[in-house]
Structure formats: structure tokens, C-alpha cells
Design a protein around this nucleic acid. Structure first.
Lengths: 205, 205
DNA sequence: ACCTGAACACCGTTCAAGT
DNA sequence: ACCTGAACACCGTTCAAGT
């Protein structure tokens, strides 16, 4: 039986899998061809070149991001829920999100969440420039976190001992603090804490 | 006159310049050799290979980070001043900071600022796990911002029109908000706003 | 101790040629 | 319209050989 024809979608899917598994750096046109059991040059016919392949990957990732629904009673709770949902979505494909960010599509990636954030910030009583700043502050907070977390995963922990020593010396009078800083970060917890604090700070005053 | 002997420092300096100018991806061993007017293989004698060259670059960048001094009267002001100083330091060499982050040295990079943050958070009355969370929240906030900003510079703005259309539709009843969101972000301003809000949220309650 | 060129296995991309 | 192999210029790295 003849080999089924290669489609642009086949190429994008395989590329997305490879990127998600080992990062964008590990995506080679030749390796991708091997994965698809085809000649390297066929890929060029379908997607142009490596650059536009990554562009297409970024676009597809942005388009696949679902609209977030806010949950909770107060605007504060609802904003935090949007941030958490957004982070969860992004963390499902951290490497692809990194590609999106690298290619300058970060703003577009936020469009669905932005609508929800605008609504909630408005409901909380913020208007005009202050509302815009609040929306953007939350957006930056979320992407920043995801980018930081992504690299924390890839490069587990090095020189932990060194950091712990410093912490101890600086937090001498507060052993619980020193102990807390010696433990690895609980990202989810820290994220929620930070977003809550940020939102509180943005809404009050 | 004979060519002056090549040193490890020569190699690291030239590499740092190349990375800072065009990003880590643009650093090739052969290009570096050309820049230093030497054979590629000499570089290997001095720094091992590309991987450990980047490691060394990250280490050197971390070591060069000056200790930050807090300024201002209240703990709140002093924490914000540390965050701003840190961001300023990091933004001076955004590409090298990205290398540091990629190689998992982010925590070590923060050691100097961490001492200052611990002191101020303590002065603000936080203790134990809550103090640790506050310190880390500020740290994450700063790196996150720098990482986001670095990519914003590299990939200016694309599809601005698309984003503007969405914003308008979502912020219909608040023209100033719509206008504010259509303008490009003032990163410095947004950063200060966010850090203030975060710190306020962390300290109160 | 330091530097060199040759060589290897990889890479992205182009192109002329096939069906 | 789709796929192919050959070829080009690049890359990181190793190694045996020089001084």
C-alpha cells in the first residue's frame, strides 16, 4: 500500500511534539524528516523553512488557547482565577509558549484572557489608565512566571549548597525563614500568593 | 612584533560582547575565533567547548552583579528600591542574563539582592515562611519582568492592529482604557506600578 | 604550555530533476 | 502538486602534529 500523502498538518504536529519534548533547540529539519519518514526537502515544500515552521507553530499554539472563564464571587477572586487558568494553560505546553514568546506573539496570546481581565478590573471599579495598567500587570506577571518556571524545570538545581549558606547567614535571627528559603520553591503556591498580593495591591488605594 | 598570547579572559570578553550584541544563538566558535584572529581550535584549549564557554559566561555575569543598596525610608520604599536597582542591573546585559537563566544560575544571581530583601522584609514585620514567600515573590517578579522585556525588545511589535481591534471591542464603554491599551507599554512605569502593588499586597494583612 | 590545519559528523537550504 | 538526492556553506568537536 502506498504511503499516505504528507500534509502540512503532519509536519506541524510532529514538529510540535519534538519541540515540546526537548525544546526548540532540539528541532532539526533532518530529525523531523526522519520522524516523518520522508526526505528533508519535502518539509521545505510544505512549510517553507525552519523559521516559518516555528512561526506557524507559534500561531497554532496561540490559536489553540481556549478562552478563560472567570470563577469566584468577588472581582479579586475572579481575577486570580483568570491568572491561574491562564498559567495552567500555558504550563501545559511550556516549550511551545517559549516559542510563542520568542516570536513576539505574546500580546496576541493574551487576547482571550485580556477580555476577561478587562471586565473584572472594570467590575472592581478601576477605570481608564489605571485599569489598563492593572490588566497589563497581571498579564506580565503570568508570562513572567511561566518563563521563569520553564527554565527552572529544564535546569533543575545547581549550587544549592552555595545559596543555602548565604541564606543562613542573612536570616540568622529567623530560623524558620532560613529553613523556608533552603527548601525548593513550591511554584504553584508562590504563584497564587504573588498574584493575590499583586491584585490586592492593584485594587486597593 | 609577535601576536600577544591569547588568554582565557580574552576569549570570555569577546564571547560576552558577541552574545550581548546579537544573542546567544549568534555565538559561533568559528565566528569567535575570527573575532580573536586565531584558530578555532585555540579556543577549545582555553575554554573546553561551547557549552562550558557559556557556563563560564554565566558565572562571570553572576559574579559581576554588584550588591544592591536599599534606599528610602519605609521598608516598602526600600524593597521597591531593591527591585528597581536589580532590574536596572539585569537590563544592562539582558542577553547575558538570559544565558544565566538558561543555565540555572538564577538563584545564585539573586544572592546579593536576597540579603537586602530579607533585611527589609524582616523590618516590615514579616517572619518565617511568610517572609520567605515575600522575598521570593519579589525575586520572581523581577526576573520574570526582565525575561519578558528582553523578548519584547528583540521582537518589536507584530500584529498590533489585531490586538487593538480586540481591545476596542472589549473596552467599549471605557474609551480611555481602550486608548491606554492601544498604546505600547511603558515597561519602566508598569514595572514600578506592579512591584509597588505586589509589595503592598505582601506587607498588608 | 599553547597553537595549528585536517577531518568528521552534523546542520539549514537551494536546485534541478523526477512523478 | 508533491517528492527526491546531490550539493553548498555552515556548524561544533576531535586529534595528531607542531612550537
Amino acid at each position: 500500500m502506498p504511503k499516505p500523502a504528507l500534509t502540512r498538518e503532519d509536519v506541524l504536529d510532529a514538529a510540535a511534539r519534538l519541540v515540546e519534548r526537548h525544546g526548540p533547540g532540539a528541532l532539526s529539519m533532518r530529525g523531523l524528516a526522519a520522524e516523518l519518514d520522508t526526505a528533508v526537502t519535502s518539509i521545505y515544500w510544505h512549510v517553507g523553512n525552519r523559521e516559518s515552521l516555528l512561526d506557524a507553530l507559534a500561531e497554532a499554539t496561540v490559536d489553540r488557547l481556549a478562552t478563560v472563564r472567570a470563577t469566584g464571587r468577588t472581582p479579586r477572586q475572579r481575577i486570580v482565577s483568570v491568572a491561574r487558568a491562564l498559567r495552567r494553560d500555558l504550563l501545559e505546553h511550556p516549550q511551545l509558549i517559549a516559542v510563542v514568546h520568542e516570536r513576539g506573539l505574546t500580546e496576541r496570546m493574551f487576547v482571550p484572557a485580556q477580555r476577561a481581565l478587562i471586565r473584572e478590573v472594570h467590575a472592581a471599579g478601576l477605570r481608564g489608565a489605571r485599569a489598563a495598567a492593572a490588566v497589563r500587570a497581571v498579564q506580565f506577571q503570568v508570562v513572567g512566571y511561566v518563563l521563569v518556571e520553564r527554565n527552572r524545570e529544564r535546569a533543575p538545581v545547581r549550587a544549592r549548597g552555595g545559596a543555602a549558606r548565604w541564606d543562613a547567614s542573612a536570616a540568622d535571627h529567623d530560623p524558620p525563614l532560613a529553613r523556608a528559603l533552603a527548601h525548593p520553591v513550591d511554584s504553584e503556591r508562590l504563584f497564587v500568593t504573588s498574584v493575590r498580593a499583586l491584585v490586592d495591591g492593584l485594587l486597593t488605594r
